[in-house]
Structure formats: C-alpha cells, structure tokens
C-alpha cells in the first residue's frame, strides 16, 4: 500500500487549466443561448454513444478521464444510462445498423438534453460518406447542438466542446 501512496505523491497533481468556450464552435452551434443550457451549470452527465466510429474518437474520449483533464472536477461525468444523461456525445458517421440505437438512446434521455457530435465523420460521414451502410452525419438522425471537428479531436478539443455546449 505504501508503494501506491508513494507513487501517487510522486506523480503529484497534473491537472491543467480548462479551456474557455470556443467562439468558432459557438458560431457553428445552434441556438445555444436561446435554449439556455447554462442551467446545467457545473453538473452535467454525459452518455457516450458510438454510432459506427473507427474507435479513434473513443481513444481520445478515454483520455478525457486522464489526470490532465480532471473532467469530474469541472462538473462533467460519464454515466452508464441515457436515463441519467443530460448530454449525448456521439461519434461515428452513423452506421445504418446503429441508427435505431442512436434514436432510442436519444429518446430515452430526459429533457432538456443536448447532443454533441464528435469527430469529422460524425459531421457529414467524413471519409465514409457515400457508403451504402452509413446515414452520413449525426444530425441526419438527432438534432446536434455542438460539433467538435477533428480526426480524432484531442481531449482538449473535446473538453472545449463540452464547455462551449454548457457555458457558451
């Protein structure tokens, strides 16, 4: 046990200051202020949904939980059920096999709720656009509020997307 404690002390606190909301993302976001999502304040539950991504975005979303980000200290946390979620974080070009699951997940969330689309292919299908097997973009299935581009976006961009969604 003392080895673990020593290691924790030696590692120290790595958390970096959080980014501020992004004006670029805000400009592309839909009616954020009108919908006053500020009400979520500093307690926001996120449900992640992979709608056919290559899993690159998932690698970066995992690292949102690295000690550099300290997601929970900022009021965000990932939850297991859409019933507990305020925000749906969707990756992937929406494979047709996941379309129904995406809709069902979104519908299972209580109001008010918002969707953040993550990664280039979640915006318009990206490199997978035009395939017989993809719907091509999250907002063809559920209304998207904030879009975080990148292939994949890094944890800081993801965090900025989240902060923009709630504070912008």
């Amino acid at each position: 046990m003392h080895h673990i404690l020593y290691r924790i002390l030696k590692t120290g606190i790595l958390t970096e200051p959080a980014p501020s909301p992004s004006d670029t993302l805000l400009a592309q976001a839909e009616n954020l202020s009108a919908l006053s999502y500020r009400r979520f304040g500093h307690s926001l539950s996120i449900r992640h949904l992979d709608a056919g991504s290559c899993n690159g975005c998932e690698l970066e979303i995992h690292l949102l939980n690295s000690p550099y980000s300290m997601l929970e200290a900022l009021g965000f946390r990932f939850v297991a059920s859409p019933r507990h979620a305020d925000l749906l974080m969707v990756t992937g070009p929406v494979s047709l096999h996941m379309k129904e699951a995406l809709l069902a997940t979104w519908e299972a969330m209580p109001h008010p709720k918002l969707v953040v689309a993550v990664g280039d292919c979640s915006l318009d299908g990206g490199v997978f656009a035009g395939s017989y097997a993809v719907a091509g973009g999250v907002d063809s299935v559920v209304p998207v509020r904030v879009r975080v581009p990148g292939c994949p976006p890094d944890p800081r961009a993801l965090l900025q997307g989240l902060i923009t969604a709630v504070e912008g």
Binding site: G52, P93, S95, M98, F128, S131, Y132, V134
Partner: peptide
Amino acid sequence: FTHKGIDGLYRGASRAKAARL
C-alpha cells in the same frame, strides 16, 4: 453494428483516399 461498407468504398477510390480509409 459499426459496419461502414469499407470494401465498397475502396472500389474506384484514389490511392490517397483509400490509404486514409
């Protein structure tokens, strides 16, 4: 569930596009 039809997308794709895929 995550089937994206990549074999289909390879067809007729430029090498640069296929490499990205």
